[in-house]
Design a protein around this nucleic acid. Structure first.
Lengths: 133, 133
DNA sequence: CCGTATCCTAAAGGATACTG
DNA sequence: CAGTATCCTTTAGGATACGG
């Protein structure tokens, strides 16, 4: 991956303006670009939650999809998983310190979404009209 | 979608801590969560480019995938498309003013990626070891 | 050069049933 | 409760060929 602004850093093993498939940042984009990850992290931001509580807050997510998402977040060190051996079993998911560092960038992205959504909606309508739906 | 921090805004038509499928921000997340969109916007950040130039800089993207991605970006008003009627035809893609406003949030996300990649890599190795590959 | 159309394969995603 | 396993359907994605 290249820079968004040249001064920011030195991209490891990446030529300027070329997104090689081995570029480390590509790996992370694949994670961030997941359908549910951002929402899971947002939900966990207020504190640890149990599986079904998370599930209830993400309308449309299936158990399978949420499990996969949580596993990947756990694997990447963004979320921790703790089994509480009661009967019936409880499992707590908690955002890690590393996961918390994602909060500022995500917050910026979220603010953008809220601020620009109306403009995007207008652009869509214009586009769809331009090409007879 | 809910807030990442309660003070930021008032989410339109969304209950606190609940990501409804009709919530406008979900629509945007679906766009941002696209595999190539962020890279396309990063590549276009330096100026307008032609289709095949963009394609060359995104290793592994197919013509079909890139076309789809650019159409969606155009539809959402983040990128503009201009046909230059030479022979053979040339098509220029350019980031729009609206698209440019995404730059700061993306830059923050990108900086995070570069900064935290090593930690993520360590977390992965630990996870994979915990569960016998 | 910049697509669209078609075909085909691979992967994602839902539904259901079952287990510690 | 929190998964895993299985099946099956749907969708995404690559490859190829062709058209404006």
């Amino acid at each position: 991956m290249t820079t968004l602004s040249e001064a920011d850093h030195t991209p490891p093993r990446c030529k300027p303006q070329h997104f090689s498939s081995e570029c480390p940042s590509r790996v992370l984009i694949d994670q961030i670009a997941d359908k549910w990850s951002m929402m899971v992290l947002a939900v966990l931001d207020s504190g640890p939650l149990r599986f079904n509580v998370i599930k209830k807050q993400l309308e449309g997510v299936t158990q399978k999809a949420l499990t996969q998402c949580l596993r990947r977040l756990e694997r990447n060190g963004l979320v921790s998983r703790q089994v509480i051996a009661d009967a019936p079993v409880a499992v707590q998911y908690e955002i890690t310190p590393l996961g918390r560092t994602l909060q500022p960038p995500f917050r910026a992205l979220y603010a953008w979404t809220i601020a620009k959504m109306p403009e995007v909606e207008l652009a869509r309508q214009a586009f769809d009209e331009r090409r007879g739906r």
